Computed example of a mutant assay.
Amino acid sequence: MTVTPLSYCTNVHPAEDLDGVLAQLDRYAEPVRRLVGTDVLGLGLWLPAALAAGLADDPALRAKLRTELDARGLEVHTLNAFPYGGFHDEVVKHSVYRPQWTDQRRLEYTLDCATVLADLLPDGARYGSISTLPLAWRTPWDDADDAAAMRALTELTAVLDGMASRDGRPIRLAVEPEPGCVLDSVADAVRWLAPRVDPRYVGLCLDTCHLAVSFADPAETVAEIHRAGLSVVKVQASAALQVEEPASEAAQQALADFTEPRYLHQVRERTEDGVVLGADDLPQARTELPALRTWRVHFHVPLHARPAAPLSATTDVLRAAVAALASTVDELPHVEVETYTWSVLPETAGNGGDTALIRGIAAELRWAAAQLLGQDGGVR
Rank of each mutant, 00 (worst) to 15 (best):
L6H: 03
L6Y: 02
S7Q: 10
C9N: 10
D17S: 02
L18T: 10
L18K: 07
L22T: 09
A23R: 09
R34A: 11
L35N: 13
L35T: 15
V36Q: 14
D39I: 05
L43K: 00
P48C: 13
L51W: 12
L51K: 12
A53T: 12
G54L: 12
G54C: 05
P59N: 09
P59A: 08
A60I: 08
R62I: 15
L65C: 08
R66F: 08
D70Y: 02
V76F: 06
V76I: 07
T78C: 12
G85E: 07
F87T: 04
H94I: 04
Q100R: 09
Q100N: 11
R106F: 08
L111I: 00
A114C: 01
A118D: 03
L120W: 05
L120D: 00
P122C: 15
R126Y: 14
G128W: 15
I130M: 10
T132I: 07
L135K: 02
L135I: 06
R138A: 01
D145Y: 00
D146L: 07
A148D: 10
A149T: 06
A152D: 13
E155P: 05
L160K: 05
A164H: 13
R169N: 11
L173M: 15
E178P: 10
E178V: 08
G180I: 03
C181S: 14
C181V: 09
V182N: 02
S185F: 05
W192T: 11
R196P: 11
V197E: 14
D198C: 13
C209Y: 12
L211T: 00
E220Q: 13
T221C: 13
T221Q: 12
E224V: 04
I225S: 02
I225E: 05
H226I: 07
G229D: 01
L230N: 03
V232F: 13
V232L: 11
Q236P: 03
A240Q: 04
Q242S: 07
V243G: 02
E244N: 01
E245G: 03
Q253V: 14
F258S: 12
E260T: 12
H265I: 13
H265E: 01
Q266W: 08
E269D: 08
R270E: 04
V275W: 04
G278E: 00
D281I: 05
A291S: 06
T294R: 09
H300E: 08
P302D: 10
L303H: 09
T314A: 11
T315F: 05
R319S: 10
P333F: 03
E338G: 11
E338W: 14
V344D: 02
P346E: 00
P346Y: 00
A349Y: 04
G350W: 10
G352I: 05
G352E: 04
A356H: 03
L365N: 15
R366W: 05
A368R: 15
Q371M: 07
G374T: 09
G377N: 13
R380G: 12
